[in-house]
Design a binder for these strands. Sequence first.
DNA 1: TAAAGTTGTTCCGCTCGATTGAACGCAGTG
DNA 2: CACTGCGTTCAATCGAGCGGAACAACTTTA
Lengths: 257, 257
Amino acid sequence: METQRTSGDRRIEAVVKTLDVLEALWRAEGAGVTAVTERTGLAKSTVHAHLRTLRSKGYVVQEGDEYRLSLRFLSFGEYVKHAEPLYEAAATPSADLSDRTGERVLCSTEQHGLGTIIQARDGNRSVTSDIDVGTPTYLHCSAGGKVMLAHFDDEKVERIVDDWGLPAFTEETITDRETLFEELESIRDAGIAYNRSEYVPGISAIGAPIMDNDETVYGAIAVSGPQHRLENEWDVDELRNQLLSAANTIEVNLMFS
Amino acid sequence: METQRTSGDRRIEAVVKTLDVLEALWRAEGAGVTAVTERTGLAKSTVHAHLRTLRSKGYVVQEGDEYRLSLRFLSFGEYVKHAEPLYEAAATPSADLSDRTGERVLCSTEQHGLGTIIQARDGNRSVTSDIDVGTPTYLHCSAGGKVMLAHFDDEKVERIVDDWGLPAFTEETITDRETLFEELESIRDAGIAYNRSEYVPGISAIGAPIMDNDETVYGAIAVSGPQHRLENEWDVDELRNQLLSAANTIEVNLMFS
DNA sequence: TAAAGTTGTTCCGCTCGATTGAACGCAGTG
DNA sequence: CACTGCGTTCAATCGAGCGGAACAACTTTA
């Protein structure tokens, strides 16, 4: 997960390495020294030194020969969650929408070019997904992500694409800039965005923006479900209205926080 | 938050400093360079270099002149939360208990000598508290903490006290080892632990252990409320039974996970 | 309006420490 | 008993983390 390095980017290598180690532990959901070594490309002794340091500060726990992220990250995680206004503001509207539609509702916001799911609510027939609260997501291949991109200024979109590229996840993923910008244009016109199996095959979604005022976009809310159900069973106008209504409720909530 | 450094503790200074910076940002709930400098005692340029590195890796966001922890920590936090079996296992029993008692229910576990709240449920009349999910807590001054200490072997308790000391928070806090060990003895006999305003004045609690099998303690569940209510209004035997019942339910849940 | 005091940021040299390959101890295994 | 996997330790060296001082962009004060 490399990202935005602008001009004067003299970085502290040891810090970069430690973060890589933490990220490897996270991805692997716990791992031994050699597993981390393979994932990071660092020397085994280096990894060991970092793990030892992280352990001594309580950020990593060792159980037998396996290292895992410690509960220290729980305090950080809960803090950033509650510090994000969208979390409270979107709680009930998201739950209502998933109740009404029976589908999975995801509420996300953008940070340094990636989306992060802030709220995830399951409906009574929603499909399970590996996307959950906290999951970082690419913006170009999700309904919520595209709807946010559509309301950023072009240079910001350019910068994000420069930083993260347009990796393909399915056949449908948009992988070139021109198509993306055309799509963003039509999203601005329509007021909502579609994700047609662009990230996970067979999973589609519809997303609406959450605007701060009428100028800047704060985040997005999206209904996600099996492609056939969203395309065939659903009354698109009805769903669109419910989505926009939920988004609007969140916007109002945001004004009182 | 220094902690367990055992024998060969050659630590990576740069990593220690970065973690201190992150912790300062967390405590301050966002801060500028100089504020972090004051909290950490590092040089301003050093803090700046660390913040720049953390930002470039997406762990910190900069808004104007203020740096904050990024949503990156949300993924870590959600991961460790769900990786902890107690989180799922304690969800409904904790909610039930807070419904029944109307008081705040806290479920915690131990890691590197500190407790961490895994579940926090409010009852219909529970007092607000700065203790919430993710909050690290000293073990010697909380009901849940003491009940865990009571089921650790003595050497582990000694080590924890060595590492963290017995800082006083109120007049009632236990601050010497002898009293602590006597208390732990009586907790083992009684099967439950009391916190009589030992951490926050006027707030008391009753805690029960969550045992893995009949040998090792996995965590603790506690009911917390205003001292006078828990001491006067409540039928202690009744509360004790409800507590132990909830703990037992959690233990059963843990066996199927 | 200018001066004085903030802040965040950059620069650069010094030396201290992060890094790594190799060696070690200790398991399990054929 | 050799062999292979692991986590851990060690020592040497070269690179990079560090902090003082200077700078820039502000706001506050006289």
